[in-house]
């Protein structure tokens, strides 16, 4: 550690050296605290039940031969107690793909409309729409549940006439109900993110396109969508993580065809039994978002900053 040079240094200078290193030490200390839990889960997912219950996961290094893939094999095999994890993974995908694509498309139209078209009440509508970011989703659960389960009816007071406003189209308990809900809940943030980006595009290109006779529809398809690709990617990462990791909306609107998060909570519920499976399951659920996160971190951060730093 102490090279001849540092040994010759005056004490004050050496202390200052140490102080300059302090940020590195403190940061890495926090980094260790922040990562150890995940490592613990990862290691435990490869251990046998007997080992998990009798010794800490940090002792697993002592006998690496005891590690096994059995837990992973178990969760992907169908059993009487729990269907295979493949089924839940499949349900998750069925929810996530449309729940990511639909809001992006709808929000892109709206972002262009709010940024580059002039109409009465534009600012007010935009503020109203974006302020819905802060509305707790809980405020919409009961009415949406009733809507999906029986349509909407309105009884005219006085005459006692019941009008069916929306029919029961039978999407209760289907992935479609969850797509629509995710779309509505994700839209305000999506519109804000895309609007911030689209409104920063140079005015000249739109004016040039208008003079050349391009319609708004052409401008949107040929100019806005290609140019806004970074913002679209940023929100796609956002919405993907949010829908993949969602537990609340799925558990409110689904009784069957449930996604992986619900399967995991069910596993946690039955304490003792199949205790060892929860680690492997939790890790399987984490793998996809972690891959997306590490490979598209740049986009994710950009989306985060566009949504919050501005203003």
């Amino acid at each position: 550690m102490t090279s001849p040079q540092t040994a010759l240094m005056p004490t004050g200078l050496r202390l200052r050296r140490l102080a300059a290193e302090a940020p590195t030490w403190v940061m890495w200390l926090i980094v260790v605290v922040w990562t150890v839990p995940t490592i613990g889960l990862f290691v435990s997912s490869f251990r046998k039940v007997r080992d998990i219950d009798s010794s800490g996961w940090w002792t697993a290094w002592n006998d690496l031969d005891n590690l096994t893939f059995q837990n992973y094999r178990d969760i992907f095999r169908e059993s009487a107690a729990q269907p295979s994890m493949w089924e839940f993974a499949f349900n998750s995908v069925a929810i996530v793909v449309p729940a990511t694509i639909i809001p992006i498309a709808v929000a892109a139209f709206a972002a262009y409309g709010f940024a580059w078209m002039d109409f009465r009440g534009r600012n007010w509508l935009f503020i109203g729409l974006v302020s819905m970011i802060a509305l707790p989703n809980q405020m919409a659960f009961v009415p949406l549940l009733q809507l999906f389960n029986g349509g909407a009816r309105f009884t005219i007071p006085g005459v006692d006439w019941t009008l069916a406003l929306l029919p029961d189209v039978g999407i209760a308990n289907t992935a479609a109900a969850v797509w629509l809900t995710h779309t509505a809940f994700g839209l305000p943030l999506a519109v804000l993110l895309l609007h911030n980006f689209v409104s920063q595009l140079p005015r000249d290109i739109f004016e040039a396109a208008r003079i050349d006779g391009a319609s708004h529809f052409t401008i949107f398809c040929r100019l806005v969508v290609p140019l806004a690709r970074p913002a679209l990617a940023a929100f796609a990462v956002f919405q993907f993580l949010w829908t993949w990791n969602d537990y609340l909306i799925a558990s409110v609107f689904l009784n069957e065809n449930e996604p992986m998060t619900i399967a995991l909570v069910n596993l946690v519920g039955e304490r003792g039994q199949n205790f060892q499976l929860r680690f492997a399951s939790a890790f399987v659920i984490m793998v996809v978002p972690l891959i997306v996160f590490f490979s598209l971190q740049r986009h994710f951060v950009r989306g985060l900053l566009a949504g919050s730093v501005k203003g």
Partner: peptide, 13 residues
Amino acid sequence: MPMAISMVGAAVI
């Protein structure tokens, strides 16, 4: 990194 992990996963961890 924990931002990418679901709350349910974090609870298990």
